[in-house]
Design a protein around this nucleic acid. Structure first.
Lengths: 123, 123
DNA sequence: GTCCTTGCAAATAGTTTGCAAGCCG
DNA sequence: CGGCTTGCAAACTATTTGCAAGGAC
């Protein structure tokens, strides 16, 4: 994998941002510095960084994928009201499948619900 | 929610099948009995059944959504080689977010890796 | 009879891809 | 210089939606 300035910019942006971002958000952000970058390039770089384990992805109830520059194991909480994505530590590493002869390469734990902020605003 | 024969057929099919199915697979199956049913109707019913909690959905690394007629809490294992989806019991119910004032309505635990069958075939 | 639901077809939107030119190593 | 990568635009595909007719209750 070559280090092009576009690829570096995508990765740096995802690492600098605490929020999880959709491909379009990454595109918009990187475009500030590289006005000529194309959405296709962003998508290609995101897949490659994903495959390389440099970033991870979360699916929300929307149809689009969000990317996360923090690759350490953690769970995600998706608020169904404000759509915010929160990080949580993975409290228990789960080993069911490993015992059955399955190789776990990755695990994704996602909670869906209402976040504390929205809970307060509604009370 | 009314009980139309189309909606019943979608739900019954998902409950009868052990496999998780994409919208198109549901469509093909239901079409055997109702040749005139349209894909749009299948999608509409799937969303409604989802919202009603009668079925659940799993996202795989493909871009399409798979539906599951078994709604009891369980984890999914997606084999990245043969794409098969396996069910596993949820060994630990996790309560991180609840303690922080978040309301968890749903949780999704998905493992990605290689299943025992593919592990054997490759050894 | 009401109005939710259907079938059809067209529209949407996120993502992918072919191609020629560009740039990294 | 070789070949991975880019920009552009067109293609793809899963899913959604508008509308008039049909069916559940």
């Amino acid at each position: 994998m070559r280090n092009t300035k576009q690829r570096t910019a995508v990765l740096e942006f995802l690492r600098s941002k605490r929020q999880h971002c959709s491909a379009t958000q990454v595109y918009d952000a990187v475009r500030v510095k590289f006005p000529n970058i194309s959405l296709g390039t962003v998508y290609r770089n995101l897949s490659q960084l994903l495959e390389d384990g440099k970033i991870i992805s979360v699916e929300t109830s929307d149809k689009c994928v969000y990317y996360d520059g923090f690759t350490s194991d953690h769970a995600h909480f998706v608020c169904e009201r404000c759509k915010e994505i929160y990080d949580f530590p993975l409290v228990s590493s789960i080993s069911g499948p490993e015992e059955a002869g399955f190789t776990v390469l990755n695990q994704r734990v996602v909670y869906y619900g209402v976040c504390s902020k929205c809970n307060k605003n509604n009370a």
